[in-house]
Amino acid sequence: MNGADRPLVELAGISKHFGEGDTRVDALSEVSMSVMPGEIVGLVGPSGSGKSTLLNVIACILEPSSGRMRIEGKDIYDNRWLKGNLRRLRLDKIGFIFQFHNLLPFLNALENVAMVRELAGASSAEARARATELLDYLGVGHRKAAMPATISGGEAQRVAIARAIANRPRIILADEPTAALDSQRAGIVMDLMSQVAKEQQAAVIVVSHDEKIFNRFHRIFHLRDGRLETVESAPVQANASGMQEP
């Protein structure tokens, strides 16, 4: 099995419970799923269905009670990974996109993107060059000196995408990335994520309530009461942006 055929993210029988006895809550029960390179999948479900818990598990910040998780074929949560190593894994392998962009308010757009490159060990010059390249690619190069408080929601989300892909991660986790955007901007953001998934051969996992973007997913995982209820294959619309990832 070569790299393209192997799932980037594999979950097998993942369960997570909080508390014990009468106060025990089963947030996830026997969830199994996998995401292939270049695939963009949706995690959907009502509130309390376990989407956030599953996202935290995939993000390597919440250890499941049982089950196995693999990233690029390597077992995570098998007691060989120290906390610091998981953080390094997130820095190198996972990009995060948030509902409210979560840009650091004291850094400008360029610095927000360059920071993750510097954290990964790149020189300041190299990090800034990469950040400039990505901001230009995402159409917000002209706003690189702007502070997050002074740019629009759509621009901020593009900067956040630039930050998420700055280290060329293999997995992108997006938590309600379009919830704070109007339809047009939401479409642009999804175009960008599809583009990145395709060109970078990254696995993109999107938690969303936004039905307008469901048609952008290759597959949709429906969660209810912590269980994976159905897996739906969706027809993916063509990417309209036509941009080439640098």
């Binding site: 610091g84 390094r88 820095l91 948030f98 930050r163």
Partner: peptide
């Protein structure tokens, strides 16, 4: 706190 949480999540070391 939120910025620190973001830094931790994206992988910034302690």
């Amino acid at each position: 706190v939120r910025e620190i949480a973001t830094l931790k999540l994206i992988g910034a070391p302690d």
